[in-house]
Design a protein around this nucleic acid. Structure first.
Length: 260
DNA sequence: ATGCCGTACCGTGTACGA
């Protein structure tokens, strides 16, 4: 089975591009983030026409998550218990479903904006609440096959960014964000792509501006944190830079996982 | 320097992304 995660940066702008990519790479399950699309406008037909079922959750022009699968999408759940709200709203940042026995999450972690912005505290709270619930679930069922896939908006190590100095005073690299990410690893989840995509200079996001992609000035912020039972099945992973290089591409590249 | 690029939205500009 082949599982992937991709921040698509608007599904309406590139649904055909995404489905063509899934067909080309024989993707069975794709977790998508930043669909930027309310549910009543989601281009479900693009997926259904190619044999993919799709579950989606979007409330407007921001955020939005979805899971497309050709091996079933069952027990769809929106958000998670204890999910913090922002300015009174539960944002569309989490969806989960069971696909061929794997509990797949599509997660769009809040950006944080600036370290002194309320959004930053919201980001830390959001990650903490998610770590609480997912770690608890894993402790209750250590054999569970779970993939916490998505755009984590955290660069866990200095090697995960092109220039540490560039991010001085900004989000994504701060110690509290890294500690929030590490809590998932402490809870038993594993960065399953890591061993197959060694750095340095290996990224999943490149800003549209300033020719960042052409100069390979990027960040590694997209991950699937997998339970041990699922990690045991993963025998390969890669970041598809060609998808980022395409005309009209998202600013993120997909991360692909091959399971036995 | 707060723009550079790209997307959404009652939209001829602003918010957001990272």
């Amino acid at each position: 089975m082949r599982l992937a995660t991709w921040n698509v940066n608007s599904i309406r702008a590139r649904s055909e591009q995404v489905v063509a990519w899934m067909n080309r790479h024989a993707i069975d399950v794709l977790a998508m983030q930043e669909t930027k699309c309310p549910d009543d406008a989601f281009p479900a037909m693009s997926f259904l026409a190619h044999g993919y079922d799709v579950a989606f959750h979007g409330t407007g022009g921001y955020n939005g998550v979805a899971i497309a699968s050709r091996v079933g999408v069952h027990d769809v759940h929106i958000g998670f218990d204890g999910q913090p709200s922002y300015e009174g709203e539960h944002e569309a940042r989490a969806i989960s479903a069971t696909c061929a026995g794997v509990r797949v999450w599509s997660l769009y972690v809040p950006n944080g904006r600036e370290p002194d912005h309320p959004h930053y505290g919201y980001k830390l709270d959001w990650l903490s609440a998610l770590a609480d619930i997912t770690s608890l679930q894993l402790s209750h069922d250590p054999a569970a096959q779970v993939a916490l896939a998505g755009d984590w908006n955290v660069a866990p190590t200095d090697e995960d960014v092109w220039d540490v100095d560039h991010f001085d005073g900004r989000t994504h690299l701060t110690a509290p964000e890294r500690a929030a990410f590490t809590r998932f690893l402490d809870g038993g989840f594993i960065d399953s792509a890591g061993p197959f995509t060694p750095g340095p200079d290996v990224y999943t996001f490149w800003d549209y501006q300033s020719g960042r992609f052409a100069r390979n000035e990027g960040m590694r912020i997209d991950f699937a944190l997998c339970s041990p039972a699922l990690d045991d099945r993963i025998h390969d992973a890669f970041i598809d830079r060609d998808a980022r290089a395409a005309d009209g591409a998202s600013d993120h590249a997909p991360v692909v996982f091959d399971l036995s």
